[in-house]
Amino acid sequence: MSAIEAPVIEATGLTKRYGRFTAVDGIDLAIGKGEVFGLLGPNGSGKTTTILLLLGLTEPSAGEIRVLGLDPLRKPLSVKRRVGYLPDQIGFYDHLSAVENLAYTARLAGLASPEAGKRIAEALERVRLSDVRDRRVSTYSRGMRQRLGLAEVLVKGSEIAILDEPTSGLDPQSTQELLDLIRELAADGVTIVLSSHLLSMMQSLCDRVALFRRGRIGLIGKVADLTADVLGGTHVVEVEASGVDLPAVLAGAPHVSAVTPLKGGRWRVDADADVRADIARRVVNASGALSEMTIRQSSLDEVYVRFFEGEDHDRAA
């Protein structure tokens, strides 16, 4: 783990037990200012608990947390004033309009009403809910609710935004809209911590990710580094060839880290660079017949699957 200069979120040995069940088991975490940090892992692996601990909404059994240099347990109000939170499956007061809902939380956050009114109008404009601002939230779709939740984070003017499963249960278009908004937020310099199962989204959004497994962080780092670490390469080449023994042909080839046979005379080659030309040359030199070759960048999905291979999901959940 590379050292982060002046981290805005720092956790050391963070542990949370519910009775005999350990939800978070001694995690260490440092998130730098302006970073987009992803928490990845199956359900019940401790992501949401970690988020609640960071916000001071639940007390750790052991360990230390610093958010913006403050202890969320000792200075909960200062921390909560500067950190915005979009909970998993966000709920609003359904009988109130979007504006009324935001006005309530703005008052709780201690904003004076003229300032709050201005910020609410701006935030609703930004999440494209201005047209329906006076409609009851009960008429809102799931995607609109999530955007309203993001508007709340905007109204608060948070330095850190913690988003728990922001896109779960959204259709692809709403997901895309929400992701664009999160990108805009990140571009404004807001530090973003988000948890998700959507790996492709994490890959495109996050600077760094942490993979949770049974309350521990199994891996942490940049997406590219993780793919290299877990899969042994960032590129995957699928080769269909006959008349050669590909592993033997590619033995000692530069950049190639693994050759795995697939079915039907195909192989999968993991590499940390585009090695197609080299493979083609070697296959032809060995008098083999190369019939097909495709390349793709290895994705977080594969890291995830590989990392959790053999994991007993029921026990983790």
């Binding site: 200062s78 909560k80 915005g84 909970p87 609003f92 007061y93 939380t105 709780l108 201690g110």
Partner: peptide, 14 residues
């Protein structure tokens, strides 16, 4: 049950 509690308590209040 409305799932509003965590949102309200993440505001700076006790």
């Amino acid at each position: 049950s409305r799932r509003t509690l965590s949102r309200v308590l993440s505001q700076p209040i006790y």
